Simulated scan of single mutants.
Amino acid sequence: MTFENLKVNIKDRIATVYINRPKKLNALNRATIEELHQAFKSLREDTEAAVIILTGSGEKAFVAGADISEFSDYNVEQGKDLAAKGQEQVFDYIADFPKPVIAAVNGFALGGGLELAMSAHFRIASDNARLGLPETSLGVIPGYGGTQRLPQLVGKGRAMEMIMTAGMIDAQTAKDYGLVNHVTTIEELIPFAEKLAFKILNNSRQAISAAIEAVNDNYKDGVNGFETEVRNFGKSFGTEDFKEGTQAFLNKQKPNFK
């Protein structure tokens, strides 16, 4: 896959997606959002890609925010359309992605950048990371899921404070809040993400996809996550992975999932 604003590498069943606009601190513009959609759409069908690591090029920024110059003159309807399309094409698309997505946050993850990281299934951060939702300082609110996902991850009070103050938190504070799972050095960020990815690769891809759906359904209005869990649990019994996993366990062997 060749893109103008992204780099995508696939090795050992791990796809690493780099937002590649380092001169703009990897800020999200409309072209980058479209390329992210196309990249993930392709990775969904690519049998060589089982786990995705999402990160930014360079050491300064994961994504420093949205490209404000593109929407500074938008009206009300254009603003609504910007948020709706972005959420559908990228942020919700990644959140519901059937393959594990790990955000490796290097440097600034602000505004749309933090929202992008929060759409991943979990996050790790380098010790130079700075995270925040500064939209209220621009006279708008987070529009790519930030008002919804941040409270889910850190709690309502902390989310309200972060959004209202428009301030940044460091990596360790983000870990203390539960916003990121691990903090590493910048040099170890991608190797650590790959280490986690290899652990995931030991397990059933089919079961992981079913688990992602069940966990996500707990956070969707009008959807009973328990019912999804029961349904997907039952479906698991009809898979080859279930036969392989249970027989390997009973025979004290390592499973070889296909």
Rank of each mutant, 00 (worst) to 15 (best):
L201N: 08
L201D: 00
L201M: 09
N202G: 13
N203V: 05
N203Y: 12
N203E: 14
N203C: 08
S204N: 05
R205G: 15
R205Y: 06
R205K: 12
R205D: 07
Q206T: 13
Q206D: 10
Q206K: 12
A207W: 02
A207K: 02
A207T: 02
I208W: 10
S209M: 07
S209K: 11
A210P: 00
A210H: 01
A211M: 15
A211K: 09
A211H: 09
I212D: 00
I212Y: 06
I212P: 04
I212N: 00
I212T: 04
E213V: 10
A214K: 08
A214G: 01
V215T: 12
V215I: 14
V215L: 08
N216S: 13
N216P: 06
D217E: 11
D217Y: 04
D217R: 05
D217S: 14
N218E: 01
Y219D: 08
Y219E: 06
Y219I: 00
K220N: 06
K220D: 00
D221F: 10
D221G: 01
G222P: 02
G222I: 03
V223H: 06
V223M: 04
V223P: 06
V223E: 11
N224E: 02
N224L: 03
G225T: 07
G225K: 06
F226H: 12
F226R: 10
E227F: 09
E227M: 11
E227Y: 09
T228H: 13
T228P: 02
T228A: 14
E229H: 13
E229C: 13
E229Y: 15
V230L: 15
V230F: 10
V230E: 11
V230S: 07
V230G: 03
R231I: 11
R231A: 14
R231E: 15
N232D: 07
N232Y: 01
